[in-house]
Simulated scan of single mutants.
Amino acid sequence: MSTDALFIGLMSGTSLDGVDGVLARFSPDGTMQVQAHAFNPFPDAFKAELLQLNQSGPDELHRAALAGNGIARHYAQVVQALLAQTGHAPEAVTAIGAHGQTVRHRPLEFDGLPDQPAVGYTLQLNNPSLLAELSGIDVVADFRSRDLAAGGQGAPLVPAFHQGVFGQSQGCVAVLNIGGISNLSVLQPDGHVMGWDCGPGNALMDHWCQTHTGQAFDRNGDWAATGQTSHTLLERLLGESYLSKQPPKSTGRDLFNPAWLQQHLSNLPDLPAQDIQATLTAFTAQACVRDVHAHAPGAQRLIVCGGGAFNGHLMSLLAQGLPGVPVVSSEAHGLPPLQVEAAAFAWLAFKAVRREPASLTSVTGARGARVLGAVYPR
Rank of each mutant, 00 (worst) to 15 (best):
F7N: 02
L16G: 06
D17Q: 07
G21R: 10
A24D: 02
T31D: 11
M32H: 03
M32C: 14
A36R: 09
A38P: 00
F39T: 07
S56L: 13
A64S: 15
I71P: 00
H74T: 11
G87D: 07
V93M: 07
V93K: 00
G97L: 06
G97F: 07
A98E: 01
V103F: 00
L113T: 06
D115C: 11
D115M: 12
P117T: 06
V119E: 09
L125Y: 09
L131C: 10
S135D: 03
A141D: 07
D142K: 00
D142N: 14
R146D: 12
Q153E: 15
G154M: 01
V158W: 01
Q163F: 01
F166H: 02
G167D: 10
S169P: 04
C172F: 05
G179R: 03
G180N: 06
I181H: 06
I181W: 06
S182N: 10
D197K: 05
A203G: 02
L204A: 00
C209W: 12
Q210W: 11
Q210R: 15
D222K: 14
T232E: 15
R236Y: 13
L237I: 10
S241G: 02
S241D: 10
Q246L: 14
P248C: 04
K249C: 12
S250N: 06
L261F: 04
L261R: 00
S266F: 08
P272F: 13
I276K: 01
Q277M: 15
T281E: 07
R290Q: 14
V292F: 12
A294C: 07
L302H: 06
I303W: 09
G307F: 06
A309W: 01
L314C: 04
L314T: 02
M315I: 03
L317T: 00
G324C: 11
V327G: 07
S330F: 09
A332T: 13
A332Q: 13
H333L: 14
G334C: 01
P337E: 01
A343I: 04
A344L: 10
F345G: 02
L348D: 06
F350E: 11
K351L: 15
V353R: 14
A358F: 03
L360V: 11
T361P: 12
A366H: 05
L372E: 08
A374C: 11
P377F: 01
